[in-house]
């Protein structure tokens, strides 16, 4: 991760359109952002797509970054990209089809993940609801404080804390 002073210089370079500064951001954040997308989707190809989209957005939006926590800004975009992806996916499927397929697809997905030699964590994460999974991953990969995460999610810190606690406890129980 870039130090604060370095990061400011890198962001200033990005705003001037310097490709090497975007490469520096990619070096610093690609791993964490990829981990975030991968743990949410459990799919490498999809994670590749979402990470590419994130950095394209970064090029487009870097001018609108006005200071503050860069991680918070970056992961807010990442979270929006993931949620947009979910929305598009949902729109594509008809409501009825979703309902009938839901139960089967979930178990298929878990099975598929297992067959793809996914780690146990990924399999159990797939059993959590999307919102809880996203909260846990956002906190873990963004390394933001709970206060910052609550701000991103536009909810009171107590709600975020409670959801995080419940989610992590459930995940740990499933892993045991």
């Amino acid at each position: 991760m870039a130090k604060t002073g370095d990061l400011a210089a890198i962001i200033a370079g990005c705003k001037k359109g310097k490709a090497e500064c975007f490469s520096a951001l990619l070096d610093s954040y690609a791993g964490r952002c990829y981990g975030y997308f991968y743990r949410l989707t459990g799919n490498r190809d999809l994670s590749d797509e979402l990470l590419s989209e994130l950095f394209v957005k970064l090029v487009e939006k870097i001018g609108s970054y006005k200071g503050g926590s860069f991680e918070s800004w970056l992961f807010k975009i990442a979270s929006n990209i993931f949620n947009d992806h979910l929305r598009v996916k949902q729109r594509r499927s008809k409501a009825l089809e979703v309902r009938t397929r839901e139960a089967k697809s979930e178990s298929d997905r878990v099975e598929r993940l297992g067959s793809e030699k996914m780690d146990r964590l990924q399999v159990q994460l797939g059993r959590l609801d999307v919102a809880t999974r996203e909260l846990i991953m956002l906190r873990f990969y963004s390394q933001l404080s709970l206060k910052e995460i609550a701000a991103i999610r536009s909810e009171p810190i107590g709600t975020t804390l409670s959801k995080l606690h419940r989610g992590l406890k459930k995940l740990r129980a499933m892993m045991e």
């Binding site: 490469s23 690609a30 981990g35 991968y38 590749d48 990470l51 590419s52 950095f55 990924q122």
Partner: peptide
């Protein structure tokens, strides 16, 4: 979690250059 592949990073860098 697994990390991004080298090919993916190169592809993203190329895309960024084109966008810039």
């Amino acid at each position: 979690a697994p990390g991004p592949s080298e090919e993916l990073l190169q592809s993203i860098e190329a895309t960024i250059s084109v966008r810039l």
